Simulated scan of single mutants.
Amino acid sequence: MGPKYNGLYELIENDSEADDYFDNLPDYVKESIYEREQNINSFDSLRDYAANLMRNE
């Protein structure tokens, strides 16, 4: 498990792998993640949340 951040913006600012991953997500997934950005505090949580959203398409 990687480092924890204070939210999505800090995560993608400090983790280039997370930034690349986020950039390649579909727009509807990004919008949902933006709404809960304070809960996304690690690359693992970003991947898990995005996977859940895409699984429920």
Score class of each variant (00 low, 15 high):
residue 57 E to W: 08
residue 19 D to M: 10
residue 5 Y to E: 02
residue 31 E to D: 13
residue 18 A to E: 05
residue 28 Y to T: 07
residue 47 R to C: 04
residue 3 P to A: 03
residue 24 N to T: 07
residue 44 D to V: 15
residue 48 D to L: 14
residue 7 G to C: 03
residue 48 D to Y: 12
residue 54 M to T: 12
residue 39 N to C: 09
residue 2 G to I: 10
residue 36 R to T: 13
residue 37 E to C: 09
residue 8 L to V: 05
residue 7 G to M: 04
residue 38 Q to G: 07
residue 27 D to T: 11
residue 50 A to M: 02
residue 44 D to M: 14
residue 42 S to I: 13
residue 2 G to V: 10
residue 35 E to W: 07
residue 45 S to L: 14
residue 46 L to Q: 03
residue 55 R to V: 09
residue 32 S to N: 15
residue 12 I to A: 00
residue 7 G to F: 02
residue 48 D to P: 00
residue 25 L to S: 02
residue 5 Y to A: 00
residue 38 Q to F: 08
residue 33 I to Q: 03
residue 54 M to L: 14
residue 41 N to V: 14
residue 35 E to P: 04
residue 20 D to A: 07
residue 8 L to Y: 05
residue 16 S to T: 06
residue 26 P to D: 14
residue 56 N to E: 14
residue 23 D to Q: 12
residue 50 A to H: 02
residue 33 I to E: 10
residue 50 A to Y: 01
residue 48 D to A: 13
residue 31 E to V: 12
residue 56 N to I: 11
residue 24 N to M: 10
residue 33 I to D: 09
residue 27 D to Y: 05
residue 43 F to A: 01
residue 9 Y to C: 01
residue 13 E to I: 00
residue 16 S to P: 01
residue 10 E to H: 02
residue 47 R to K: 14
residue 5 Y to H: 03
residue 31 E to I: 13
residue 41 N to C: 11
residue 53 L to W: 03
residue 17 E to H: 09
residue 13 E to S: 00
residue 30 K to R: 11
residue 16 S to W: 06
residue 11 L to M: 07
residue 24 N to Q: 11
residue 55 R to K: 14
residue 8 L to I: 08
residue 7 G to R: 03
residue 22 F to D: 02
residue 18 A to C: 09
residue 23 D to Y: 08
residue 19 D to W: 07
residue 29 V to G: 01
residue 11 L to H: 02
residue 40 I to C: 04
residue 26 P to Y: 05
residue 39 N to F: 13
residue 25 L to A: 03
residue 41 N to M: 12
residue 14 N to Y: 08
residue 24 N to H: 13
residue 25 L to M: 05
residue 11 L to K: 02
residue 21 Y to S: 01
residue 23 D to R: 09
residue 28 Y to L: 08
residue 28 Y to N: 11
residue 20 D to M: 07
residue 35 E to K: 14
residue 15 D to F: 07
residue 23 D to F: 06
residue 55 R to S: 09
residue 34 Y to K: 08
residue 44 D to T: 13
residue 3 P to F: 11
residue 13 E to P: 01
residue 39 N to G: 11
residue 21 Y to P: 00
residue 1 M to N: 03
residue 34 Y to L: 09
residue 8 L to K: 04
residue 36 R to A: 08
residue 46 L to I: 09
residue 10 E to I: 04
residue 49 Y to L: 14
residue 36 R to E: 15
residue 44 D to L: 15
residue 13 E to G: 00
residue 17 E to G: 03
residue 18 A to P: 06
residue 54 M to P: 03
residue 44 D to S: 15
residue 54 M to E: 15
residue 11 L to W: 05
residue 3 P to Y: 11
residue 44 D to I: 14
residue 19 D to Y: 09
residue 55 R to H: 11
residue 2 G to C: 08
